[in-house]
């Protein structure tokens, strides 16, 4: 995935404004369907969440818990030493927590492989732009905001050195 495409709807004032292209596309996809279908879309992201690679699957203690979520989820970011400081995301959440897995799947697809600067620029209100407030409830969406905050903090720490 490259960040050079112009999928983002910068300047349109829509919910995808100012987001990196992959994340903008996800936001637009959610808005393109009805509310019940948005739940199905979230479920697709839940199912599509990549499994942990063995180096983390065998060492769950390396991942950071996200207490803002109602279900147990752990996440970890890696930042490459390349010029862009490319970010990679890893999540672990049980199958009995599909909503939380869905949030993680959105962040994985929307942010993985981006330069650190772009991950840090993602606005904190992105989770409320998915059009899920009514179908999922703002209370539950807070967990996703918690995940994003932790991802950004980890990336900030990794790039500060």
């Amino acid at each position: 995935m490259t960040a050079a495409t112009t999928g983002g709807a910068a300047g349109t004032g829509g919910p995808a404004e100012g987001l990196p292209p992959a994340l903008a596309e996800i936001v637009e996809d959610f808005h393109a369907v009805s509310e019940p279908e948005r739940l199905q879309l979230l479920l697709d992201f839940s199912r599509g969440l990549p499994a942990l690679p063995p180096r983390y699957a065998d060492h769950p203690e390396l991942l950071e818990p996200v207490p803002e979520c109602q279900s147990p989820i752990f996440l970890l970011t890696e930042v490459d030493d390349d010029a862009d400081r490319t970010v990679h995301l890893f999540f672990s959440a049980p199958a009995e927590a599909p909503t939380t897995r869905g949030f993680a799947g959105i962040l994985a697809e929307g942010l993985d492989g981006l330069p650190a600067a772009q991950v840090l620029d993602v606005p904190g209100d992105v989770c409320s732009r998915l059009g899920l407030d009514r179908a999922v409830s703002p209370l539950r969406l807070r967990g996703m905001t918690g995940m994003l905050g932790r991802i950004q903090r980890q990336v900030r720490e990794s790039t500060a050195a």
Partner: peptide
């Protein structure tokens, strides 16, 4: 609690009632 859990599989014929989106006044 999880608003999507029903969609991953439920008892045959069971309907879903969500505490937040169905039972709470918006």
């Amino acid at each position: 609690e999880d608003v999507l859990l029903y969609e991953t599989g439920h008892i045959a014929g069971a309907v879903k009632v969500d505490w937040h989106t169905d039972l709470n006044d918006p």
